Simulated scan of single mutants.
Amino acid sequence: MELDDARAGKQPRDRRIAKLMRGGKAAQREAQLMVSEKILAAANAGTSLMAGASADKIVAQYRKKVAANAKRLSRKQTRRKRKSR
C-alpha cells in the first residue's frame, strides 16, 4: 500500500473514532453503519474475486467507499430539532 493510500484511509477512520467517542445516538448509528458496511464490503470483495476481478479492481471498490465515507464524515453535523408534541 502506498503512503498516500494509508493517509487517505486514516482520515475517515479518525473522524469515525471521534464520532464514536462522543457517544449518544449518533455514535450508535455510526457503529451500526460501520459494521454493516464492513460486512457488505467483504461480501462484495468475495463476489468480485469469485467473478474473476483483479486485485486492483477490488481495491478500487474499497477506495470508492472510503472516499464516500470521508465526504460524509467531514460534513458539518447539524442537530435535528425534535418535534414538539
Rank of each mutant, 00 (worst) to 15 (best):
A41H: 06
A67I: 05
M34F: 11
P12I: 00
L40C: 04
Q28A: 04
D4Q: 15
R13G: 00
D5V: 02
G24D: 01
K57A: 12
L40Y: 06
Q32H: 05
N44E: 15
G9P: 05
A70Y: 03
R75T: 14
S48W: 06
L49P: 00
S36M: 12
I39H: 11
G9N: 15
M34P: 07
A70D: 12
Y62C: 08
K19S: 08
Q61S: 12
R79I: 10
M21G: 06
V66F: 01
I58M: 08
A18N: 13
A51N: 11
D14H: 09
G24H: 03
K25D: 10
K38F: 03
L73I: 04
K64E: 15
D4R: 10
S48A: 15
D5F: 04
M1R: 04
S48K: 15
S74N: 12
R79D: 13
L20S: 11
A41F: 12
G23W: 05
I17W: 09
G24R: 01
S48L: 14
E37S: 08
R75D: 10
A55K: 12
E2H: 06
D4K: 12
K38L: 14
D5I: 01
M21Y: 04
A51G: 02
K19W: 05
G46M: 02
R15D: 01
M21T: 09
K83F: 10
I39W: 08
